[in-house]
Structure formats: structure tokens, C-alpha cells
């Protein structure tokens, strides 16, 4: 992959000017990562394909909002994909709530630590800080981020009351912030 973050930033800048070629290039350079993001949250290929398109439509329309806001361009793109996927996940669940079979439609989240990708240096810092939390709590943070789980989902998953989960998460986040400031 010869594409650098600077290249991606440049593509986004050109997309903001309506450059379709830049949009095509950006898609080629980043769609696998964004599709992986949608798939992780949605666990359904067809739905993930649709949401991936939605995410890139937002990129096309809102490229001008990515000025240099201090966020890496790749993080900006992944955030758009992840938020689009979580929006869809919640719409699907809201629509299915009356059916009562919602949980069966969602494969169980893998909340066990994943050894593979986490080795990447980019992830090293937060991985180290997550490791300092109790395993359940770091898994809850990861379930929220990677699988789009809500407090209610997490409470059910870890079999604790909702308020307890909220307290866990908030304390974990404060610990993470302190750890990462070091």
C-alpha cells in the first residue's frame, strides 16, 4: 500500500471540490478497511455493503467538513463508517423489537481479546491501557467500540445491572484517559 495518510488527506480535499476521480481513488484505497468496520458492527454482508455505500455518500457530501481538525483522515473515515453501521444496527433492532427475535439475529459478539491486529503499534498504546483494566471492563469498552454495543447490550452480555455497567464504563474511561496521558 503506497497510499499515505497525506495522500488520503489530499483525496478528501479534492473530493470537497467535487473531484470524482479522487473519490474513486479514495474508495479504492480505503474501502476494504471501511467494509471491515461495517461488517464487524453489522455481522451481515449484504447490510454491510449497503451501509458502506451510505458511508461513502456521506464522505462525498461532507468532505468539506474534514478540515484539519486534528483527527487522522483514516480515523475520520472509519468513524463515519462505524457511526453509519451503528445507526443501521440500532434501526434494525428498533424495527425488530416487536418481533422478539432480535438477539437471535445478532451473532454473539466476540468480546475475547483479539491477539492478532492488536499487535500493531498504532493500537499499542490503548491496548496497553485497556490491559490495565479488569478484563470484563476492557472487554466492555471494546464491545462498545468495535461492535457498537449499547449500555443495555453490555449489561445483558456481562449479566450486570444497567447502572453497574454504566459505572464500570465511566470509570474505565476515566482510567483510560489517565493511562493514555502518561
Amino acid at each position: 500500500m503506497a497510499t499515505t495518510l497525506a495522500d488520503i488527506e489530499d483525496m478528501i480535499a479534492r473530493i470537497a471540490l467535487g473531484d470524482r476521480r479522487a473519490f474513486s481513488d479514495l474508495y479504492d484505497a480505503t474501502s476494504a478497511k471501511l467494509f471491515g468496520t461495517c461488517l464487524r458492527v453489522l455481522k451481515d454482508k449484504a447490510v454491510a455493503e449497503d451501509v458502506l455505500q451510505e458511508a461513502y455518500m456521506k464522505v462525498w457530501r461532507h468532505a468539506d467538513r474534514y478540515a484539519s481538525n486534528g483527527i487522522s483522515p483514516m480515523t475520520w473515515l472509519i468513524t463515519i463508517a462505524r457511526n453509519s453501521a451503528i445507526d443501521r444496527l440500532r434501526r434494525i433492532r428498533a424495527a425488530g423489537e416487536t418481533g422478539g427475535a432480535v438477539d437471535e439475529n445478532l451473532p454473539a459478539s466476540d468480546l475475547n481479546p483479539e491477539q492478532t491486529a492488536i499487535a500493531k503499534s498504532e493500537a499499542g498504546r490503548i491496548a496497553a491501557c485497556l490491559n490495565e483494566l479488569e478484563p470484563d471492563r476492557s472487554n466492555a469498552v471494546r464491545g462498545a467500540y468495535l461492535d457498537g454495543l449499547s449500555y443495555a447490550d453490555l449489561a445483558a452480555q456481562f449479566n450486570v445491572p444497567l447502572n453497574t455497567m454504566r459505572t464500570w464504563l465511566r470509570r474505565s474511561l476515566q482510567s483510560l484517559r489517565e493511562c493514555m496521558a502518561q
Binding site: 467494509f35 468496520t37 480515523t75 500493531k120 498504532e122 499499542g124 498504546r125 471494546r142 468495535l146
Partner: peptide, 15 residues
């Protein structure tokens, strides 16, 4: 930015 390190766990899959 603090949480972006977890993005490494989104495994790329070509659509």
C-alpha cells in the same frame, strides 16, 4: 484519537 488504536481490530475485507 484516544480510541482510534482500536481501529486496528477492524480487519480489512475487500467489498
Amino acid at each position: 484519537t484516544r480510541l482510534e488504536g482500536m481501529n486496528a481490530e477492524f480487519t480489512p475485507v475487500a467489498p
